[in-house]
Design a protein around this nucleic acid. Structure first.
Lengths: 121, 121
DNA sequence: CGGAATCCACAACGATACTG
DNA sequence: CAGTATCGTTGTGGATTCCG
């Protein structure tokens, strides 16, 4: 039985944060090692298959990729499209909600880049 | 010996992310359970003592608070001011770099709030 | 008061093997 | 192809004690 619960958004946001609420919700949805990378790829490509994501996310295990995709799907940031037939084919796309993260991700990206630049001075 | 290395920015960003570089640097600096809360408090208060932070960050252990403050200090987001005399007194303030995160934190906060609102519809 | 040291728990991640 | 199952490893956090 074991009754694991590897999905249901993030494992760590049961009743996780109390204050700074919006902030915490956001970080819970995009935090962790892989999610922003997945989201960023899906911002740059209209759609990606499971195997394409696995290829791009160097070092990710299938176990974790599946888990993260499921979390993102549960949080309605991405959508999964399954095609009938053989061989199986699945594609992932961003939802509108997912796309609305672009502004934040862009800003975080620029901020980080600036930090890197100043390091080298 | 054990040779632990609990500081040195984050444990998990040695050579952690390769692509989406700026993004990853940012998330590495503010990610995790407590850092954004610490930063947010320091955005709202000009300075806070160790004990004041411990009081506000409900549920944090001293071990973790120390670690997170050190990480933030190593990343130059906050600054530690030690006063001589007895009893000991320490205050933490944001650096300019730390303050420059305000835009991102605000944006993340608003995004999260919107998500919460739409949930209730 | 402001931590550091120690010890422990558990959640996240990685590798591999297997399945519809 | 797109996953799941299982296992082992590592990272991260909590509780407690002790020290300058």
């Amino acid at each position: 039985m074991t009754t694991r619960k590897e999905n249901s958004t993030n494992n760590h946001n049961e009743m996780y944060w109390k204050s700074n609420c919006g902030l915490s919700v956001t970080l819970a949805m995009i935090g962790g090692r892989w999610k922003i990378n997945i989201l960023t790829y899906l911002l740059n490509y209209p759609k990606l298959r499971y195997s394409e994501l696995k290829e791009k996310l160097i070092g990710i295990s299938e176990r974790v990729l599946s888990a993260k995709l499921k979390e993102l799907e549960n949080d309605a940031l991405i959508e999964k499209i399954e095609y009938e037939g053989f061989p199986p084919k699945v594609e992932y796309i961003l939802t509108e909600k997912g796309k609305s993260l672009k502004e934040i991700l862009d800003l975080m990206d620029r901020w980080g880049d600036q930090v890197i630049e100043k390091q080298d001075e």
